[in-house]
Design a protein around this nucleic acid. Structure first.
Length: 503
RNA sequence: GGCCCGUUCGUCUAGCGGUUAGGACACCGCCCUCUCAAGGCGGAGAUCACGGGUUCGAAUCCCGUACGGGCUACCA
């Protein structure tokens, strides 16, 4: 039985958790959970300019929100820590020492300017533009003296010249072959003695005993370099799995231009974590080609790298919206109400105390709203009329439903009928208004739309009878009164559509 | 420039030598209906990037070409 797999997600805290990063994290998490392995979170904070503590915290919070629990990492610790690269310098120093002792690394004194010049000419000639290995053949004694004199230098990997093809079996791409002659003697440690990215990840993955490296496609070309480092160190080479990129709708790299790119931004718009995970999981993986809605549980039960697709995917908010909507509609009334409350409060419509006072009222409202929103942030606009003291009548709705003589008289009659209604329940309200239409000999719709606009301000609203029930008899009467007054104060109804009707 | 990776309906995908190329989102139509949604039913939409092979047979295997992407830093 093979040892249980160890995988890691290694974001750099130079910003919030990106959608693409989140998907990588999801796949790593799902793989680990499916296999009964270990999921580690490692923070690649070696870029001091851009890395911040706030970003690290935000990334961890986003992962928690998504439900991606990790077994080792910041906060939870683990046997292979520390889990911040900036705290692992000793490990890199030791690794470089091992390489030096094994004769697999050598100092290079070439200046950046010289290197730049070499690169340019090499590229102009066409073909391979890697480092020409000048310092590789330096006399060891001379090199020592120059180091002793304090001459600036970097440490490079001494790539074996007779290595031949570097072949590895990528878990999603299949066999990938690089010629080792295409890999130059890359820099491992910089002049300021900090490790380069390729050196640091490899050392970290090796010392943390990572068995499967599941990461973005952009690292595919780095893989042969890293394999060479593993070999120089005599460490076992993990299985690699390279995930395709996520693109914006225009087929370009996903960026702010395309709208929200961070997990946090989606949370703020009222997307549910299970919906985001579901959608992102689907962006490059499929359960069976048929199933589109599945829980985290199902994901970890079925996830496999074999079913990860190789082609890049375009981020489609519309499908995310649909998935989010289905999750929203599946919620119980009280669950939905509780999720909706923060948005209503932020919009200044209500308070948590009000919810505590009359939970049933909110639970009646909840499913009517859930059926009509894609995101929680859409909720306030739908229910606003239930909370405000006065509403604005939408001019175009007024001209559609209130300007005809029939509509006006229907509204007037409705006011009277509703005011004298004895039982204020949607069922009775409906019966009342239908009866009214019959008596007036107008289509029921005329009455309904007139009342709807008077009460909600718009020709489009939540279901009318339930809305009236929730609004209450007195407030309903007041709304209709106000609407009639607004209409009457208009001497020239033809201008109505351009009037504000503030009431 | 060099080296790698990718290419199935608008989008996400199923397919792993023989299918009327399946599903989902979006779109269109009908039904339901107090508006909007939700839901139900149906429809349109893919010469499987292109060109060569291999094979009785190719979306599936091989080779090119085109297009897109990545790496090619003392960035990560």
């Amino acid at each position: 039985m093979p040892p249980s797999p160890r995988v890691r997600f290694a974001p750099s805290p130079t910003g919030h958790l990106h959608i693409g990063g989140a998907r990588t994290a999801i796949y790593n998490w799902a793989f680990a959970r499916h296999q009964g392995g270990t999921f580690v979170l490692r923070i690649e904070d070696t870029d001091p300019e851009r890395s911040t503590r706030e970003n690290t915290d935000a990334i961890i919070r986003a992962m928690e929100w998504l439900g991606l629990d990790f077994d080792e990492g910041p906060g939870v610790g683990g046997p292979y820590g520390p889990y911040f690269q900036t705290q692992r310098t000793q490990t890199y120093v030791e690794a470089l020492d091992r390489l030096k002792r094994a004769g697999a690394a050598y100092p290079c004194f070439c200046t950046p300017e010289v290197l730049e010049a070499k690169r340019t000419t090499a590229r102009e000639r066409g073909g391979f533009a890697g480092y020409d290995r000048t310092c590789r053949t330096l006399d060891p004694d001379e090199a020592h003296q120059r180091i002793a004199r304090g001459e600036p230098h970097v440490w490079r990997l001494k790539v074996p010249l007779d290595r031949g093809d570097i072949v590895f079996n990528d878990a999603v791409r299949g066999e990938v072959v690089f010629q080792s002659s295409q890999v130059d003697d890359l820099v491992l440690v910089r002049t300021d003695s900090t490790p380069t990215y390729n050196f640091a990840v490899t050392i970290d993955d090796a010392t943390m005993r990572i068995s499967h490296v599941i990461r973005g496609d952009d690292h595919l070309s780095n893989t042969p370099k890293q394999i060479l480092i593993y070999e120089a160190l005599g460490e076992p080479i993990p299985t690699f799995a390279h995930l395709s990129m996520i693109w914006g709708p225009d087929g370009k790299r996903l960026s702010k231009r395309h709208g929200a790119t961070s997990v946090e931004a989606y949370r703020e718009q009222g997307y549910l974590p299970e919906a985001l995970v579901n959608y992102l999981a689907l962006l490059g993986w499929s359960l069976d080609g048929e199933t589109t809605i599945f829980s985290r549980e199902v994901l970890k039960e079925h996830f496999s790298l074999e079913r990860v697709s190789r082609n890049p995917a375009i981020f489609d908010v519309e499908k995310l919206d649909w998935i989010n909507g289905t999750y929203l509609r599946e919620m119980s009334p009280s669950d939905f109400a509780q999720h909706m409350m923060p948005w209503l409060q932020d919009a200044g419509l209500t308070t948590i105390d009000d919810y505590a006072t009359r939970p049933d009222w909110y639970h009646t409202l909840a499913p009517r709203v859930a059926e009509r929103v894609k995101r929680l942030c859409d909720a306030p606009a739908l229910v606003e009329f239930l909370f405000r003291d006065t509403i604005e009548l939408e001019p175009s709705s007024v001209s559609k439903a209130l300007l005809s003589g029939d509509a006006r008289s229907a509204l007037r009659a409705a006011q009277a009928a509703l005011t004298s209604l004895e039982v204020w329940r949607s069922q009775e309200i409906e019966t009342c208004l239908r009866g009214l239409a019959e008596r007036l000999a107008v289509k029921p719709k005329i009455v309904f739309q007139a009342v709807r606009v008077a009460v909600t301000g718009s020709v489009v609203s939540l279901p009318l009878f339930e809305s009236l029930e929730l609004l209450g008899q007195d407030r309903t009467a007041e709304r209709i009164r106000a609407a009639l007054e607004a209409l009457d104060s208009d001497r020239n109804p033809a201008d109505a559509a351009s009037e504000p009707y503030a009431r």
